[in-house]
Design a protein around this nucleic acid. Structure first.
Length: 274
DNA sequence: GTCCAGGCATGCA
DNA sequence: TGCATGCATGGA
């Protein structure tokens, strides 16, 4: 990967296996929006980014090298060799054709707090509505970072709310889960940063102890927010996919189960009936 | 009107 | 341990 400054923009070339639409709009993160010019706008780690791919070059508008190194390099998982991972996953027949069709899905490294709250909200919900709820939460309770953009609300901000204030954002019965998590994080009873540094099994056990978090939400949070690429979340779509693997997951998934999962999830949503 | 969505807590066997 | 049931909301 070659990093180059051009005016106030940062240009990345030589990035393999990165599709912005497939990565930013595939149900991993809920705050990215495609603009009319085909670029993508979003907020993460309290930073706004507009990014676009042109002729194989990624243009990060108004982005300093410090923000790139401090946030976006890791957010887009740019130090991982996805081309090699995909080559390995293509040993599996279903993934072989799926990866050809949807090449470029990456696993984002989001903030633990945002990922956990987002996937608590995601349960028994659909992606369009999840995006709406999170958008309202951010616009109403997230810090204004300029230009009409808002950060994801902090645990302090959400802890200060009542359950009914959260319900007003459309969280439904999940409001009480988010309220309790925010309170516990604020009180120090739940330490997401400590969980992030644990071995996978311990981290999962810790998340399963959070009110409103079960196997599926824990796996999503661990995969998309806590850096555990071996997690393999199974939701209603993945249950349909698993019928194609009656003997369990193939060996070539080992070590990068989360990447395999995202391709299969995407395939299922596009090819299987609900 | 019914069914479904990146499920989970609860109660009961 | 495993299974049935209720749960908020909006789109199809």
């Amino acid at each position: 990967m070659i990093i180059e400054q051009k005016g106030s923009d940062l240009l990345l070339s030589g990035v393999e296996c990165m599709s912005l639409p497939l990565t930013l709009d595939c149900g991993e993160a809920f705050r990215w929006k495609m603009e009319e010019d085909g670029s993508w706008s979003g907020v993460a780690f309290e930073k706004y980014l507009n990014i676009k791919e042109e002729n194989g070059v990624f243009i990060l508008k108004n982005t300093s090298p410090e923000d790139f190194e401090g946030v976006w390099r890791r957010y887009f998982d740019l130090d991982r060799d996805y081309a090699a991972i995909c080559a390995r996953l293509k040993q599996d027949d279903l993934l072989s054709s799926t990866i050809d069709e949807y090449y470029g899905i990456r696993i984002l490294n989001q903030e633990p707090w945002e990922a956990l709250v987002s996937f608590i909200i995601s349960q028994q919900n659909n992606i369009k509505r999840i995006k709406g709820i999170i958008s309202r939460l951010c616009n109403t309770y997230g810090r204004d970072i300029g230009g009409g953009r808002h950060a994801f609300p902090t645990s302090a901000a959400l802890s200060a709310l009542t359950v009914s204030q959260l319900e007003e954002m459309g969280l439904g019965y999940r409001a009480k889960y988010v309220k309790k998590l925010a309170d516990d994080v604020e009180a120090g009873a739940t330490d997401l940063e400590a969980i992030r540094r644990m071995p996978l099994e311990d981290a999962k056990k810790a998340l399963l102890g959070v009110y409103g978090v079960g196997e599926k939400v824990a796996n999503c949070a661990l995969l998309f927010g806590f850096g555990f690429i071996r997690c393999f979340p199974v939701d209603v779509w993945m249950k349909r996919v698993l019928e194609f693997y009656p003997n369990g997951l193939p060996e070539c998934f080992e070590g990068c189960e989360g990447v395999a999962q995202q391709y299969l999830f995407h395939w299922a949503r596009n090819n299987l009936q609900g």
